[in-house]
Structures are given as structure tokens and as C-alpha cells.
């Protein structure tokens, strides 16, 4: 298996190659990488891969890591059922 086939986002199985190509082609931010590839959009909410995406974007000439969190966190930060959201106990 080549280095490029390494999975970065485990939830959505997005590879290093896909992320690299996206950054190189669009010279884009981590957020745009997420929207274009779905990396960081799985059940873990990007908890596992967000730091790698930030780093790849920075390494490949995109925006550097700043005080701002690049892939914003949105509630719910854990996948919850509509039942729980509606006030049911689990």
C-alpha cells in the first residue's frame, strides 16, 4: 500500500491522496477540504482527523494554523437520536 492510500479520515475513509489533491487543486482552507471531500464529517465529528487536515493544509501552502479553530465545532458534539434531542431519556 502506498503512502498516498493512507486513510486520513477514518469515518469517511478519505485518503491522503484525495486530501492532497484537493488542497493542491483548490489552494483551499481546511473547511473547504472538509466540504469537498467529506473528511471530518463522519460520526466522530472530525475529532480524530481535524489536526491532520489542519497540518496538511498548512504544509501544502494553505492558510497556517491560527487562533481561530478552522473546522468549527457544532452541536450536537456527539451523535444523538431525535428521541434524545426531543427530551427522551436514552
Amino acid at each position: 500500500m502506498g503512502d498516498n492510500e493512507t486513510v486520513i479520515c477514518r469515518c469517511e475513509e478519505i485518503t491522503l491522496k484525495e486530501i492532497k489533491e484537493t488542497i493542491e487543486r483548490y489552494q483551499c482552507s481546511a473547511r473547504e477540504v472538509k466540504l469537498r471531500t467529506r473528511a471530518g464529517m463522519g460520526p466522530c465529528g472530525g475529532r480524530t482527523c481535524r489536526c491532520m487536515i489542519d497540518r496538511l493544509v498548512e504544509q501544502l501552502g494553505g492558510p497556517s494554523i491560527s487562533n481561530e479553530i478552522s473546522l468549527s465545532y457544532r452541536p450536537p458534539v456527539r451523535p444523538v437520536s431525535f428521541g434524545v434531542l426531543g427530551g427522551d431519556v436514552k
Partner: peptide, 27 residues
């Protein structure tokens, strides 16, 4: 996931998460 709670003060002590090193075959 159990209920909704209201409090005067809230403390976040959620700790850290591990940073992965992706390697071919790590899934």
C-alpha cells in the same frame, strides 16, 4: 444524553484527546 441541567457555574474538565499518526494499514 440523560437530561437537561441548569447550573449557575459550569466547569469544563474534558481533558485531552490523542493525536493520531496515520500509517498505511492503520484502520
Amino acid at each position: 444524553t440523560d437530561n437537561v441541567m441548569e447550573c449557575k457555574c459550569l466547569l469544563l474538565a474534558t481533558g485531552a484527546s490523542e493525536t493520531p499518526i496515520p500509517i498505511p494499514g492503520w484502520t
